[in-house]
């Protein structure tokens, strides 16, 4: 019986991990390509969920329309996350390259992304308060029982879906022309410019991808767990950072492995040691890994070691 319960927990952990995967990939893209620890990602994730909820509950602000269908509302939420991400690009990354004659210049995008994190979070808090909101979608309770195990179908679909998106992304990075340009920028932005890559036009693509991944992940979360809250980004964001580091900074497949490992260790430690132990397990794992294998499981040696 114990064995079966543990197996059920493993299934739940993998499902939870699927939420972390897309967000962890968003983090790892920002670090791997732009060397930018983008702290707005949790806020973008929350923005997509809360905008979707608000539209499906109240419709467009200022009474321009009635409540919108949940699927369309979530779609608009994802668009909002992408637009917000582009706004972040305009005010953070573009200032990366400005020289100020001191080594602290690389903290600029990091610090202003923290500023944007506050701006987005508190806009939502001012508009909707801090309560957790129920979000009803068409899929209310679809569980699939095989041999005594419960697998939620939306969760299974979302796991497959996130892995498909990430696999597509990985192919895009390897094969397409844009992907090659992105990898060139990751290697050396100056050399990429010399080789004729228009860095200012390619970089926004990364931010569009970041917004898209956060939005998709938030939509999957809303469909699976039927709730959104202004703080939903903090929980997922910190776990996704852990997932990214465990997988290795800049590695897309590492982020998938990391997401699943974090999801698994979280549910298993809750099952064995109680609800508040997950924090110690996940971050302890990360710290031990950082000390003994500072590049993560699949990380590249050179990424993220630059000075701030």
């Amino acid at each position: 019986m114990l064995f079966e319960q543990v197996l059920q927990q493993i299934i739940n952990g993998l499902m939870l991990g699927s939420i972390y995967i897309s967000v962890a990939v968003a983090f790892t893209l920002a670090i791997g390509i732009l060397n930018f620890l983008n702290f707005t990602i949790p806020a973008l994730y929350m923005l997509a969920g809360m905008v979707g909820w608000s539209l499906s509950q109240y419709g467009v602000p200022f009474g321009l329309s009635g409540p919108i269908n949940w699927a369309f509302a979530l779609f608009i939420g994802i668009i909002c996350a992408i637009l917000a991400s582009l706004l972040v690009e305009r005010f953070t990354y573009r200032y990366f390259k400005m020289k100020h004659g001191d080594a602290t210049e690389h903290a600029i995008p990091l610090v202003s992304s923290l500023g944007f994190l506050l701006i987005f979070e508190y806009i939502i808090l001012i508009a909707h308060g801090s309560d957790t909101r129920g979000f009803s979608t068409a899929f209310s309770n679809l569980d699939w029982r095989i041999g005594g195990f419960i697998i939620s179908i939306p969760q299974l679909l979302s796991l497959v879906f996130s892995i498909l998106i990430v696999a597509g992304l990985s192919v895009l990075l390897k094969r397409s022309k844009v992907g090659r340009a992105l990898r060139a920028i990751a290697e050396n932005p100056d050399a990429a410019t010399i080789m004729g890559i228009d860095v200012d036009r390619i970089v926004p693509i990364v931010f569009i991808l970041i917004g898209f991944l956060c939005g998709i992940s938030a939509a999957i979360f809303a469909i699976n767990y039927h709730e959104v809250s202004p703080y939903m980004g903090d929980h997922v964001g910190t776990k996704a950072i852990a997932a990214m580091v465990i997988g290795g900074l800049g590695s897309v497949w590492g982020a998938i492995a990391g997401g699943l490992i974090v999801g698994l260790s979280e549910t298993l430690s809750i099952y064995f040691f109680g609800a508040s132990s997950a924090q110690i397990t996940v971050w302890g794992l990360l710290l031990v890994l950082l000390v003994f294998r500072p590049t993560g499981l699949f990380g590249h040696n050179a990424i993220g070691k630059g000075k701030f």
């Binding site: 580091v245 900074l249 924090q279 500072p294 993220g304």
Partner: peptide, 19 residues
């Protein structure tokens, strides 16, 4: 650890202490 890794390692310590 260096750079981003150092930021995240110190972040992890704070989370572990709170946990």
């Amino acid at each position: 650890t260096k750079g981003v890794y150092m930021v995240l390692a110190t972040f992890a310590i704070a989370e572990i202490v709170a946990g």
